[in-house]
Amino acid sequence: MQIDTAAAAAETKKEEKKRSFLRDVAERFVQHKLAVVSAVLLVIEVLLIIFLPMILKLDPITSDFMAFESAPGKGHILGTDDVGRDVFARLVYGGRVSLSVGFCSSIISLLIGVPLGLIAGYYRGAAEIIILRASEIFSAIPSMILILVVVSITGTSIVTLTCVMGVMGWTGFTKMIYGSVLSAREKEYVEAARAIGEKDRSILVRYILPNTVTPILISFTFHIASAILQESGLSFLGLGVQPPQASWGNILNGAQSISVLTYQPWRWIPAGILLLITVSAINFVGDGLRDALDVSYHR
């Protein structure tokens, strides 16, 4: 018994040093197998998309006049499309576009949505009314149609597409942060912060924001997934990324006819599968993060 307690004490002492919030989160995340697999897949995918072109010399734009709509085989590992561009190269370069549009537009949404949500939730009053009503108006308009209109005015470069999608996507973040701020500001530690003389800004940044990081992070991952889908949807309709620039959506755009769907599966199946895997992997990672970051586990 004596030895037991001594050993336990030594154990806790060792534990003490290593223990931290991030470590706890990592431990819990690892238990979510699907999320771990998804995370690994995503990392591999991103690495391939970044580094493959440097190794393999892929050309997604130039047509191979000897091979239009050719099936997978030598020279073109996944075949070519209707103007003779290499499908594999387009998948890799398209991945760069799709992932970065999804990620960057989500960042823009986050940067707009989070401060607005913080302000609405913490200061209440007129700011709350204006911000919330604005977000309701924004979310009442079908964003796809709004984006179509805006893109038809501004043009369809990747940068404008990203910005437009980013600006349109803020409402989700705002509402969610608003909700968590409302609950966080009533916590006694916020009152305690005021009692020790903290300034408003400091209360927001040090006390409220850190306690809303969890929902922000989780909805950020889900937002990336939906932004990737949105970009693909727009490109599929021909209103997003324009050829010859590749994106997963406009690769699929080429597969709008029954003959392509039936006889040239290499032109749409790989892109479709990649999109499916990526989006679901991001969602699984989001699930895993939600479980790992849940504060109620470690109180």
């Binding site: 916590k187 850190p210 306690n211």
Partner: peptide, 14 residues
């Protein structure tokens, strides 16, 4: 300064 009632609620968990 002030000391609060509920020590579970009055400390910032982060």
């Amino acid at each position: 300064q002030m000391v609060f009632q509920d020590p579970y609620a009055s400390l910032n968990p982060r």
